[in-house]
Design a protein around this nucleic acid. Structure first.
Length: 510
RNA sequence: GGUCCGUUCGUCUAUCGGUUAGGACUUCAGGUUUUCAUCCUGGCAAGAGGGGUUCGAUUCCCCUACGGACUACCA
């Protein structure tokens, strides 16, 4: 049993879609579980679609997500180079090998001629394919005399190399997710393997690279399923059947509403990111939002993505990367496409925020706290995080909702004041503040007991007093447990706040 | 149009022929928190349709319908 080797092979044609991240993730989980290698190969054989910065974006995105590579353009490796444009010189010999064996041929047809052929076939009710039948009416080395083919090539006329598929043959292969897939070659066409610009097409480069890089498992999106039979034919023609990788075609991620594949537009329309990182289109300057910038934890994104099309039998939904690596199995991947659910994505984020070390969160939000002009020790910020995080989905909301931890309330919740602030409460709190002075070092439980004892003595229901106290401390109607808040703020600070609030609010007593 | 793939609550899904078809998100109702959120309890909610095979089908097979992907000298 040879060592498992998988690859993630994106094209640098723009920002990496969240579906691409999931494909990379599944490859990674499988590889790590099997003790295998994960390879990043950049498939940039289409020079016309190359987008500057896209490759770096892909690397940055996957790094952010915690997906690590053993080999790739950015880390090197024994099969270098890992960028197809850098491997350009090695593909031609394989195309020639196919021609010599009679499995491929030269074709000289112009785009107009190809278009005309397809139109004619379509008009006749036939599939518009360049296949075993229609190729006999085209300009290629199967129909042209040998000397004319040679003359054209020598004269530098543009040509492509096409695979020569048998007219009627059954191609079958086993997909790890879908089982046996069977296609007739009569339904396939003679795909171009080598383009007139000297570059291989995806099909050739992909198969040659997977072979030379000793890839054992090809895990990719379902959009590749229709071309898998072509790839199988190539392995066969090359005589590489014995080492042909196993295939696993992943179900697609669908848009949340309606039908169809999740696209960039859906994110804009429904207000959630479709890309892992923010992306600025170098051509148009248009900015697309990213999960990172929206405040998602990478662990949550990974968890959410893993559960889109994969599930364990025990209904568990929360996993760390290490747990996913341990539990992952290709057999448990579902066959049908999964609609993306932005609401559940938020839920995953909340869950991971709750699982995360509050000290780390504190460190991460420290800059945004400082930006607001607040200062706080690490310990204090950590306490704030612990008190506030359960109320939010994203950590930036902790910063947004915690101003009163760092400054006296400058505004009081109108409704709560109207409803709860009374002369009686004001008087009570004045006394309470005095009593607090003897409790500078006390804990929340002690202070709460004291508070309730005083309320009983004053013959006032604690319920009528707690809301006013909260108003004094935070200016808000809701928040963390009251006496814990008081202690975290500090007893002395709390006394000050109570006194200030009484001054401010008592003007408004009705 | 053709080829291929798919079809369990609104959504993600569990079920390896026998279950009151389970869980999670969403939503609703209670409870806890004398606040909000969390949390707990409970409710609503599903096997596309039709044929087979079988003592018995969500599960296996076929047809139909619907959905999706692909159908470039793009990947």
């Amino acid at each position: 049993m040879s060592k498992v080797r998988v690859r993630f092979a994106p094209s640098p044609t723009g920002p990496l879609h969240i579906g691409g991240v999931r494909t990379a993730l599944f490859n990674y989980l499988f590889a790590k579980q099997q003790g295998g290698d994960m390879i990043l190969r950049i498939e940039d054989t289409d020079q016309g679609r190359f987008v500057p910065g896209a490759e770096q974006y892909i690397i940055d995105s996957l790094t952010w997500a915690g997906i690590q590579f053993d080999e790739g353009t950015h880390v090197g490796g024994p099969c270098a180079p890992y960028r197809q444009s850098d491997r350009k010189s090695m593909y031609r010999q394989y195309a020639d090998q196919l021609i010599d064996a009679g499995h491929a041929y030269y074709a000289f047809d112009t785009p107009d001629e190809l278009e005309a052929m397809r139109e004619t076939l379509k008009a006749g009710g036939m599939a518009p394919q360049y296949d075993a039948v229609s190729r006999m009416n085209m300009k290629n080395s199967l129909t042209l005399p040998e000397d004319e083919v040679k003359r054209k090539i020598d004269a530098g006329e543009p040509y492509v190399i096409r695979i020569k598929l048998p007219r009627k043959e059954e191609v079958r292969f086993h997909d790890l997710i879908r089982g046996w897939v069977v296609v007739q070659t009569s339904a396939m066409d003679d795909k171009v393997l080598f383009k007139s610009d000297g570059m291989p097409t995806y099909h050739l480069a992909n198969v040659v690279d997977d072979y030379t890089m000793k890839i054992t498992h090809v895990i990719r999106g379902e959009e590749w399923l229709p071309s898998a039979p072509l790839h199988v034919m190539l392995y066969k023609f090359f005589g590489w059947e014995a080492v042909m990788p196993k295939f696993a075609h992943l179900p697609l991620i669908l848009k949340p509403d309606g039908n169809g594949k999740l696209s960039k537009r859906d994110g804009d329309r429904l207000g959630f990111p479709v890309f892992p990182l923010e992306w600025k289109d170098p051509a148009t300057g248009e900015i697309s939002s990213g999960y990172r910038e929206k405040g998602y934890e990478p662990e949550a994104v990974v968890n959410m993505l893993a559960l889109l099309g994969w599930h364990t039998s025990d209904n568990r939904e929360l996993f760390s990367m290490d747990e996913l690596i341990q539990l992952f199995s290709i057999e448990k991947i579902s066959k049908n496409g999964a609609k993306f659910d932005p609401e559940k994505a938020k839920w995953f984020n909340h869950q991971h925020l709750m699982m995360k070390d509050p000290k780390v969160i504190a460190q991460e939000i420290a800059p945004s706290i400082a930006e607001k002009g607040f200062t706080a020790t690490d310990d204090y910020l950590t306490q704030v995080v612990q008190m506030v995080r359960e109320k939010v989905n994203f950590k930036h909301e902790i910063t947004e909702k915690s101003a009163y931890f760092f400054q006296m309330p400058s505004h009081y919740d109108d409704q709560a004041v109207q409803k709860k602030w009374t002369a009686q409460a004001s008087d009570f709190l004045k006394t309470f503040a005095e009593a607090l002075k003897a409790h500078i070092q006390s804990d929340a439980v002690t202070i709460e007991a004291m508070f309730k004892h005083m309320a009983t003595e004053a013959q006032i229901s604690p319920g009528a007093l707690m809301q006013p106290l909260r108003l004094c401390l935070s200016g808000e109607a809701g928040g963390p447990p009251l006496f814990e808040l008081l202690v975290v703020l500090g007893v002395e600070q709390s006394i000050q706040r109570i006194q200030q609030s009484i001054d401010t609010l008592s003007k408004n007593i009705h």
